[in-house]
Write a protein that binds this DNA or RNA. Sequence first.
DNA 1: ATGACTAAACTCTTTAGA
Length: 259
Amino acid sequence: MRIATWNVNSVNARLETVTRWFEEAQPDVACLQEIKCVNEKFPAEAFERLGYNLAVHGQKSYNGVAILSKTPLEDVRRGLPGDDTDEQARYLEAVVSGPQPVRVASIYLPNGNPTGTEKFAYKLAWMERLRRHAEELLGYEEPLALVGDYNVIPEDRDAEFPKNWVEDALYQPESRAAFRSLKWLGLTEAYLQADGAPGAYTFWDYQAGAWQRNNGIRIDHALLSPQAADKLRGVSIHRDVRSWDKPSDHVPLVVELDL
DNA sequence: ATGACTAAACTCTTTAGA
């Protein structure tokens, strides 16, 4: 089973690019972030034509997450528990049905810039809510994949030019510590486990020729429960998609499990 | 020191992204 995560930076503005990738890569499950539309505006038919079932948690203009699956989705949960006043659509969870079901979450973790503002505080609070929720999910002792745009650069080697990021929310010690504390619950970071080579990035800014200079960062991640990590076969980053016409600034990350 | 791109919307600028 191939589970993909991809921040598409507007599913409607980029529908042709996104569906082209689906046709080529044929993921069994795909978690999308930054769909940037309400549920009613999600281009459901385009994906249903490709054989996908879908769950969408959208929002006007910003954020928005979705899960697409070739098998039916069950136990769909919208929103991250822990704050009833949070209206940002950044978390969607569902169980992918099949002989060996997998629980999957599509995560769009807050950016948090600029640091020292309420946006950064929101990022850290959101990460703490995610940690608590992940702790509960791990208690199920099931195959679980928490995938998405974490907006965290875990280590120096996850940036081509680490010095560019020292003031950035994605690279603050607090952001990185929160990411580590999530992993320390007992989650396996799929890329490090299956590959781990430095210089692999998932995001290149649109500005200042970042792609041409390979000024990239690795901020899209897949965290696996022990029951899923045991079945980890491999991970691939679809880097070439960044050079397509009308690209997202993120590229797909694909995890392959023996399930 | 600044801006560079891209998208969305109560669009001819502003906000947000990372």
